[in-house]
Design a binder for these strands. Structure first.
Lengths: 347, 347
DNA sequence: CACCTCGATTGGATCGATCTAGGGCGATCG
DNA sequence: CGATCGCCCTAGATCGATCCAATCGAGGTG
């Protein structure tokens, strides 16, 4: 009542209606309104209808802060947001974030972004955790051997990693990842099916577990088809000109008819070398990249590329998070999803 | 005390320490601890030191939900996150979001993402607003003539738009934008300085105010240098092959020596046509795009492109939001920032 | 010495929801 | 016919912070 009086003074509602407002108007208790929102089954149908109508009339929506305080949850998922590195084509983050936002929304969660500081990688996590600002985290940068996953585990903070714990056998957290080797195998087989036999690999340096995993897909598929890989592999930095140089060397020394690359960035390097040598991608030499980045899509010839099922990854992550947060036993420690191949004119 | 007892039972703290815990341990009242955190000036130096030490010992961090409830704020900024359109090069969002996250963090805010539904563009806003989940919004898609800005204004919800209210003279909200015309003028002048006189424009359809604005930068600069624009302009859809077609037509009919494009996507189309005709970008024909996307950076030749100062935009937006939220008079209704030119080999 | 000011600190009320008990009432049962 | 059980609903306590008004002691004034 005090609220209503207060409000009747002004012309516009200064504060949104509260549970108590709805309760009073509908002639029920606060708890009944709360139940109407959260446990409709507990109400008699006619009461429910009456309360719901009042809620609609007043435009009531539960105050997030009050609910968060009482339930000790926030319905927020924390995600450290690092921008795509300049000069590379790896914009997968953009698509992933969107998928995560959508998947989270479906189950009533929102995504909270916080910046990453390379000098203090856990600072952001620590703050949000201690102030109970988020319910859980999604960790995307597990490959750097960085300490987030271990630290969060130790803090018993709920989180799911996008990416396998490559270098930590002791890691016990749950994760979702894409089978890069299978993606490259798909690409390699695709090229073999097109009649290629001398298929070269341009990948990352040996200290990248992800790079080595993807490479294994190439090796596996080549051997499975009775094809040799000797002299056909190169490991370089993930920048365009490295890819171009590697392609030039391989063309001179081993005369491959196709290239499979660990990234679209490297594939762009290959395309550059082909352009210089007046070789037509797709007709003279086939090229396949990885990530189905915008570059692959927009490049005039159209770059065939392995596409990660980021939408599925997001859905799986959210599903796992929900299980974690409801303290259900998580059945599997890790989930591996299969990528697809976006075929374009370069192959 | 009840809390401490409760906790001493277990091995790990089940709940984080609260203000009351700190107060008891430090031998002061709750309010004093609160002041130590929020208004340190009110405390005597020795008391402040003692409280701060206790806070550090316990690893105390104020509970966000409780603070939000009491202060009626959330320290969250809502941002509708739409992914980059597939098949275009417009990944500016990625860089902008990162900048916004960083700028927000600086002043104690976090960014909350929510999905956009084209059928119900205000639904997400409405929910967050009514449940007081965010303090303010950043609106990025003002150009579609969509109703968010008007609706938010009407609700008296604090928000800042990234983008001018092109089609709504009645709009009274504050905004930050990048001067696209100035960017294109920069690009055009750059080409003129390199000796080009027949510089073509490939832009968007006439119903795009942004496109027409950028085009005006080209027209203005051409005329200022006494150069003609007749027969040198084309307006098409923002997809690669449209750019390629437009370039082909222009080359045949008007023989330009340089192209300025409204987007990197269109510029890619131009590059494609050059490639087909065996013309070397940068040497035979110059090309300039807009947005300095990853495509521009990774494309082997290197595409010269207008780069929006998104970091500055974010900072400006956050600054304006803070002013709005602290009910300070906002001095200017709109801020226009100058882009720069990322010069690469294509020009 | 009473009175007032002022800086430092305190205790109670409060934000708006949910949790926990428990109450009213009609139906069922021994 | 009284006891018991469920269903539906209610009242008070609670989450953890901040706001508000008040207190307390030290120092200055008339």
């Amino acid at each position: 009542m005090a609220r209503n009086e207060r409000r009747s003074g002004g012309t516009l509602p200064v504060t949104p209606p509260t549970l108590a407002d709805v309760a009073e108007r509908a002639g029920v208790s606060r708890q009944t309104v709360s139940n109407a929102v959260n446990n409709p089954d507990l109400l008699r149908p006619d009461t429910l209808e009456r309360v719901r109508q009042t809620i609609a009339e007043l435009g009531y929506s539960p105050n997030r802060a009050a609910r968060n305080l009482r339930t000790r949850t926030s319905s927020l998922i924390g995600l450290r947001f690092a921008p795509a590195q300049e000069g590379t084509a790896n914009a997968a983050m953009d698509r992933f974030v969107h998928s995560l936002v959508e998947a989270s929304e479906e189950v009533g969660y929102h995504v909270l972004l916080f910046p990453g500081d390379d000098e203090d990688p856990i600072g952001g996590y620590d703050n949000l955790l201690r102030s109970t600002a988020v319910d859980a985290f999604v960790v995307t940068d597990t490959y750097l051997g960085n300490p987030q996953a271990a630290w969060l585990s130790q803090q018993r903070a709920p989180f799911v990693a996008f990416g396998r714990p490559w270098d930590d056998d002791a890691a016990r957290h749950v994760w979702v990842d894409v089978d890069g080797a299978a993606g490259i195998a798909l690409a390699t087989q695709h090229l073999i099916d097109r009649g290629h036999t001398r298929i070269a690999w341009i990948g990352w340096r040996k200290d990248s577990p992800i790079g080595e995993d993807r490479r294994s897909g190439w090796v596996r598929t080549m051997h499975a088809n009775g094809l040799s890989t000797t002299g056909l592999a190169s490991r370089v930095e993930d920048v365009v000109h490295s890819g171009a140089e590697a392609a030039a060397v391989l063309l001179d020394e081993s005369a491959p008819t196709a290239f499979v690359c660990a990234s679209d960035t490297l594939a762009m390097g290959v395309l550059h070398t082909l352009w210089i040598r007046q070789l037509a991608p797709g007709r003279d030499i086939a090229v396949v990249g990885f990530d189905d980045s915008q570059v692959a899509q927009v490049y005039p010839v159209g770059l065939t590329s392995v596409r990660q099922p980021l939408e599925d990854v997001a859905v799986e992550i959210v599903r796992t998070l929900r299980a974690l947060l409801s303290h259900q036993p998580v059945e599997t420690r890790g989930v591996l999803l299969e990528p697809t191949l976006a075929i374009r004119d370069s192959s």
